[in-house]
Amino acid sequence: MRTLAAALCLIAQPALAEAPATSPRPEARAGAVASTSTSSSPETAAPAPAAPQSPAVAAAPGAPDWYNVDISRLAPARSLRPSLRTPGVRAAAARLLDRQAAGSVCNDPAIQGERIGNVDGPGRCGIADAVRVTSVSGIALSRPARMDCTTASALKTWVDRGLKPSVGSEGGGPVSIRVVAGYACRGRNNVAGARLSEHSFGHAIDIAGIGLADGSEMTLLTDWDSADHGFQLRQMHQAACGIFGTVLGPDSNAAHRDHFHFDTAVNRRGGGAYCR
């Protein structure tokens, strides 16, 4: 029996060696529906679906060449989104913010100066919790002006909404404000014995001109009625109405022929603005 089994094995070996190199199972048809069988056998599991491919652009008969271009090939090689700021730019921006915060007053980085506390004056004159302002929204004051924060905030609003839009880019844009009066214990219109001016309480500022980047200046004395800057100065005057409680200019009286007077008196007690 062992001899017979050994003989049968020798006969079978050539048959195994001559087995076909490929499986006789027919190949799956292209596009055939995946099998729904739940069998876990590797041999019967449905093949994983192929990744979707961009559809080919079918040529339209008789259409010009540009019509049949594959638009996917026209996509930019890289994103058009600007790159992130470099570490150097971020560091410079951080230093600028630090300097602004260090020199800011009235809890506003756009108002630069120093806090000087209470300013005492004769009689009723003086300022409670005063600040000395040197620049507002990047526009330098020709000289530091003492005032309270209500007035400083109004000045900043006027610079942003009135001064800068009125000047625009003319002469390279505004760079300075010529201040002719801030805090001063005196009567209205500098008249001795008159009712105290709002300057006496740090509620007012007087402005005579606007300096431009090219070195020129718009002045109320020479340009209020001029063809060059008259319209812009009148726009600034109008923009101040409502921001400040009292707005006076060259058309109000002779005492203001050469400057704007802005104060916040009405802002505190209510009522409409007075603009002249």
Rank of each mutant, 00 (worst) to 15 (best):
T151A: 09
Q112M: 12
A77W: 02
C9W: 07
P14Q: 05
A152D: 10
F262Y: 14
G88V: 02
A60K: 13
Q238G: 05
E198I: 05
R95H: 02
D263C: 00
S72K: 11
I205P: 02
P55L: 14
A192L: 05
G126K: 05
A240I: 07
I243A: 04
H229C: 04
S40Q: 05
S153W: 05
A213I: 00
P122E: 15
G272V: 04
V105T: 10
L163P: 01
R161V: 11
A273L: 04
T264C: 08
V175S: 03
G193V: 09
G88F: 00
R95F: 00
S153M: 07
R2H: 15
A255D: 10
L16F: 09
E170L: 15
L233P: 08
L212V: 06
A240S: 09
H203E: 10
G271W: 10
V159S: 06
A213F: 02
P42R: 01
S135I: 08
P144H: 08
G117Y: 05
S137C: 13
G121P: 01
G202H: 02
F244D: 01
Y67G: 10
L141M: 10
P144S: 08
S104D: 01
T134G: 13
G173C: 13
Y67C: 13
G172I: 13
E198S: 15
S54Y: 12
D160G: 03
H259P: 03
A6E: 14
P174V: 15
A51N: 10
E198F: 06
A56P: 12
K156H: 09
V179K: 01
Q112T: 12
G126T: 08
P52C: 07
H229L: 05
W66L: 15
A101Q: 12
M236N: 06
G182R: 02
I177D: 02
R146G: 05
S104K: 04
A213S: 11
P14T: 02
A56Q: 13
A7F: 09
D214C: 14
S40T: 13
R276W: 06
G270P: 04
V179A: 15
R85T: 09
